[in-house]
Simulated assay, not measured.
Amino acid sequence: MQKKNSATIYDVAHRVGVSLATVSRVVNGNSNVRDSTKRKVLDAIEELGYHPNAVARGLASKKTTTIGVVMPDITDVYYSELARGIDDVANMYHYDVLLTNTDEDPVRETMAVNNLASKQVDGIIFMGNELDHEVVNTISGVNAPVVLAGSVDSEKKLPSVNIDYVEAIKEAMEAVIKNGHDRVAIVTGPVEHAINGMHRLVGYKKALEEAQIEFDDSLLFSTHQDYAAGLQVAEKILATGATAALTYDDEVAVGIMNYLRDHGKKIPEDFEIITSNDTKFTIITRPQVTSIGQPKYDIGAVAMRMLTKLMNNETIELTQVKLPHTLERRGTTLN
């Protein structure tokens, strides 16, 4: 009896008395095998504890049944919810997932894409707030399809799944303007990143224009994507005379809110806050934070489904997918 942890395809073939090709056909789901033989091979596989070598199968089929996922921060709740959607659909289609963390560093992003390509992954899903020029060049040289999830490509060359960030910010701005605020701060990441400068800021300005409120660049703030950054920027926001703020990150929003409350401001009576990602941070605080609602799991799931089609060379009519968003009104806005 062979040890279960060392069984090979040769052991299975010997046990049943068939060729290696027959075992391979059974393992790969080829229907050109008699049912009686197939049953014997499957029984032997179970008895011996044989696990097909994915690398070897990949060399034969030119597929590794593995996809790569490039994440800017695996600890960020927003990206982890996207990753859950990716993983569930990948599992449904029998793909393994390799996760890579880049800290949103273009050099590490380029290395991550190259490393995944060297592992001959069948496809890549890229997440992040910005597509650096070098990263785009690297992606274009990869011999595998790439789909963006929650990332924007200003040139729309790569397939992507997002929400309409312009419209989402515009609706959030309209909500606070309707509540009587004409000095509304907007807190984003670096404005040179397309998702901020060409989407979030555009939506903000559109709402101001329609309300006939002049844009004031002193109300534009750029921060890191964490709680401490919210605490640090809050004092600067107060100094502008702003009475409301839109933020691009939930931890930043909570930092702003806590700073304001610690300094005697009532939320939402004195100051209103709307954030963008609607993660668990928006509901574990008191008051709970009003947020743009994003279908995060669905963004990941749809991106993975799109990738499966591209990996199978299927035709995709719509490569720039925008999923619906909502405005989840909670305790940091008056209504």
Rank of each mutant, 00 (worst) to 15 (best):
T240Y: 08
N5Y: 11
G255L: 01
E167I: 10
L59P: 06
T332G: 10
E269V: 03
M257Q: 09
S218F: 05
A253S: 07
M111Q: 12
D226P: 01
R15Q: 09
T223S: 09
D96W: 06
I9W: 01
L48Q: 07
V89M: 04
R200N: 07
D11C: 10
K157A: 11
V176D: 01
S80G: 08
N312T: 14
V41P: 00
Q320C: 00
Q232D: 10
T223D: 06
I299D: 07
L219T: 08
H14I: 06
N32L: 06
D216A: 02
T243I: 09
I177N: 00
K205A: 10
V69C: 14
A172Q: 00
A13C: 01
L20I: 14
E214T: 15
N30D: 13
A21E: 00
R15F: 05
M306L: 15
S31D: 08
F126S: 08
A60H: 01
D217I: 02
T243P: 11
T243D: 03
G300H: 07
Q2N: 13
K206F: 04
D76E: 13
A185R: 13
I195L: 12
M311V: 15
D122G: 09
Y297E: 01
D73F: 04
L48N: 05
E104N: 07
T65E: 01
F281P: 07
G255M: 02
Y297F: 15
I299T: 09
Y259C: 12
E81A: 14
V161F: 02
S222F: 03
L220C: 06
M173F: 08
I163K: 06
D262W: 05
A211Q: 04
G241V: 03
A90V: 08
L219R: 12
K322Q: 12
S154F: 05
A244Y: 00
Y165S: 15
G123A: 12
L334N: 12
K280I: 15
K157L: 13
A112K: 00
N114L: 15
A83K: 07
N143R: 14
N5P: 09
D88V: 14
M306Q: 14
I163A: 06
A244G: 03
K296D: 01
A185G: 14
K266A: 13
T22D: 07
T326R: 11
T110L: 05
D270Y: 05
A211S: 11
V41E: 00
D250S: 11
V184Y: 02
H263Q: 00
T315H: 10
N115R: 14
V289M: 11
A21P: 05
A244D: 00
N162G: 04
E155R: 12
T332F: 10
Q212M: 13
A211G: 07
D76F: 10
A44N: 06
Q225F: 15
Q232K: 15
S151I: 03
A244C: 03
T22H: 09
M198F: 03
A207D: 02
T138M: 13
